[in-house]
Simulated scan of single mutants.
Amino acid sequence: MKLKRVAVYCGSANGSDPIFLAEAKALGRAIADAGLGLVYGGASVGLMGAVADTALAGGAEVIGVLPEILSGSEIAHRGLTRLEMVPTMHERKARMVKLADAFLMLPGGYGTLDEMMEIVTWKQLRLHTKPCVLINTANYWDGLLAFLDRAVEAGFLKAENRLLLEVAGSAEEAVRIAVAVDGE
């Protein structure tokens, strides 16, 4: 399988540190520079909007998948290559999985964490074999990574399954990892 599109999970807010927004823009650039398409949650705001806008500016195909519950909230990005409306959050996640060949995660809140955990769990269950790469911007995810290591120590997570979630220090590194894993 050749890597064509990456899904990005991230916040619909910019966060409190300007580095989060800068890294989202860097990810959009890295995706476009690698000749990849972007699949994401379809919003025009926060890190989501920044990744999409920067990828679009770089000439990338950008597909947004937005659940109908959010369609009236005026956050839908109207400048995408394609905006798909789906009935539910569950269908949004399933559609993004179908469209993407790899999954990259930037900082975010509950929604980002939910999407990340689900996609890594699906990989653990062998429902897919696509790369899953966490971008640990400004050590944002250190607490989660420590928790996962503790889950291994406590016997709730196998060491080999802990490795299903790869970690990158930057957007560019995350794209390189996804491309390299895909090429194996």
Rank of each mutant, 00 (worst) to 15 (best):
K4S: 05
R5P: 02
V6M: 00
C10M: 04
G11I: 03
G11D: 00
S12R: 02
A13C: 12
A13Y: 13
G15R: 06
D17C: 07
P18S: 08
P18C: 02
P18H: 01
I19N: 09
L21N: 05
A22E: 15
E23I: 09
A24W: 09
K25W: 05
A26F: 06
A26E: 09
G28A: 07
A30K: 03
A30N: 00
I31K: 00
I31A: 06
A32G: 10
A32H: 02
A32V: 07
G35L: 03
G35I: 03
L36S: 01
G37L: 06
V39H: 04
V39E: 02
Y40E: 03
G42L: 09
A43F: 02
A43H: 01
A43K: 09
V45F: 12
G46P: 06
G46C: 11
L47Y: 04
L47T: 02
G49N: 02
G49T: 00
V51I: 03
A52I: 03
T54R: 05
T54N: 06
L56V: 06
A57K: 14
A57H: 04
G59P: 03
G59F: 09
E61T: 09
E61P: 03
V62I: 07
L66A: 05
E68D: 15
I69D: 13
L70P: 09
L70E: 15
S71R: 14
G72M: 07
S73D: 14
A76L: 00
H77F: 01
R78P: 10
R78A: 14
R78W: 03
G79V: 07
G79A: 04
G79C: 00
T81S: 11
V86I: 10
E91F: 04
E91Y: 13
R92A: 01
R95P: 15
M96K: 08
M96G: 15
V97K: 15
A100C: 05
A100Q: 04
D101V: 07
L104F: 01
L104A: 04
P107T: 06
P107V: 02
G108Y: 01
G108R: 07
G109H: 11
Y110Q: 13
T112Y: 10
L113I: 07
L113V: 13
L113D: 04
E115T: 02
M116K: 00
M116I: 08
M117N: 11
M117P: 12
M117Y: 07
I119E: 06
I119H: 05
V120G: 01
T121V: 11
W122D: 03
R126S: 12
L127E: 08
H128I: 13
T129C: 10
C132M: 01
C132V: 07
L134P: 00
L134M: 14
T137K: 11
N139H: 15
Y140I: 11
W141R: 14
W141N: 04
W141P: 09
W141M: 10
D142I: 14
D142K: 08
G143I: 13
G143S: 14
L144N: 08
L144I: 08
L144S: 12
A146H: 11
A146N: 15
D149T: 12
R150Y: 15
R150I: 10
R150V: 10
A151N: 05
V152F: 08
V152E: 09
E153H: 08
E153V: 12
E153F: 13
G155T: 03
G155D: 10
A159S: 12
N161F: 11
R162P: 04
L163A: 13
L164H: 10
E166W: 03
S170N: 05
A171N: 02
A171W: 02
D182S: 13
G183F: 15
G183Y: 12
